[in-house]
Every structure is written in structure tokens, then in C-alpha cells.
Amino acid sequence: MTLELPSPIAAYVAANARLDLDGMLSPFSREAVLFADGGRHEGYAGMRALFEEAVIPVKAIFTPDTIRHEDGQVVVEGPAHGDFRGSPIRFTYRFDLDGDLIKTLEITA
């Protein structure tokens, strides 16, 4: 089954599958905020640092298997596989979109 993901989310997921750091950042607005690992990561610099520390080194690839719309957000769930303890771990990604850009993303396990 292929999920019908909004284009900025599809671009992020595809770039993550390639572990393409710049591609992962490109669907976000410059002022975007990412909430993950108990922290708030603001803008490209904050998100880049998180991806460089927590995604790329452990080859964490998120594979969405469900999507729903809830309270104005796009909620995508699925496992992330990689070279990290407990892999795979199921995650929930909550996206707020602004047109063709991601303005916020909250990632929870």
C-alpha cells in the first residue's frame, strides 16, 4: 500500500530514506521548529545538528505506514529502523504545514 503523503512530507521521507541531510531539511520553512528527544530544535541550524547527531550516524530511516488528519495536523506513524538500540522503534510524526513547507514537526515514540 502506498500512502498519499502531502508533498513536503513525502519529500522529507524520501530524503530520510537516502540519509540525504540537505534533502531532509529542504521541505522545512527556514523558521521551522522540530520537537524531538525532549528538545526544541529551531531553524535549519538546530534541525541540522539534530539530524547530524541522532539520524545520520545511526542510519535511522522512518518508514510511514499510516496517515491521518487530526486537529489541523498531518499525523504519520510507522517504524524507524537503523543501527540503534531497540531498532525498530515505532514513531509518531505530527506535522504542521504551511503551504508546501513544514513549519513544525513533533516526533514521539
Rank of each mutant, 00 (worst) to 15 (best):
P88F: 05
D96K: 08
I89S: 01
G43Y: 07
E4Q: 14
G86Y: 05
L21E: 12
H41E: 06
L97P: 10
D96R: 13
L25S: 01
F51D: 02
L3P: 07
D98H: 09
R94C: 06
I102E: 00
R85L: 11
L21M: 03
I89N: 04
D65R: 10
I9N: 03
E52V: 11
P6W: 10
V13H: 01
H81K: 07
D100P: 02
S7T: 12
D37G: 09
F28Q: 03
P88S: 02
I9W: 01
E53P: 02
I102K: 00
A45E: 15
G38M: 14
G38H: 09
F84R: 05
G86K: 04
A60T: 06
R18E: 13
E31I: 01
V33I: 15
N16R: 02
L21H: 02
L25G: 00
F51W: 10
A45Q: 15
A17M: 00
H41I: 08
D37I: 01
L19I: 02
L105V: 06
Y12W: 09
S26K: 10
E52A: 15
I56R: 07
G38L: 13
G82L: 03
G39A: 14
P64V: 07
D83Y: 03
D83R: 12
D65L: 02
H41S: 07
G46H: 06
R90H: 10
Q73T: 05
F35H: 14
D83S: 12
S87Q: 03
D71C: 04
E70S: 13
A49K: 15
L19M: 06
F28Y: 14
L5N: 08
D20Q: 00
T92D: 04
G46T: 08
V58P: 05
E77Y: 02
L50H: 15
A10H: 03
N16V: 00
A10C: 01
G99W: 12
L50E: 12
N16A: 03
L5Q: 09
E4P: 01
T92H: 03
L101F: 09
A54F: 14
I102D: 00
L101K: 15
E42K: 11
D98S: 12
G23N: 03
K59R: 15
G39L: 10
H69V: 13
L21R: 04
R94L: 04
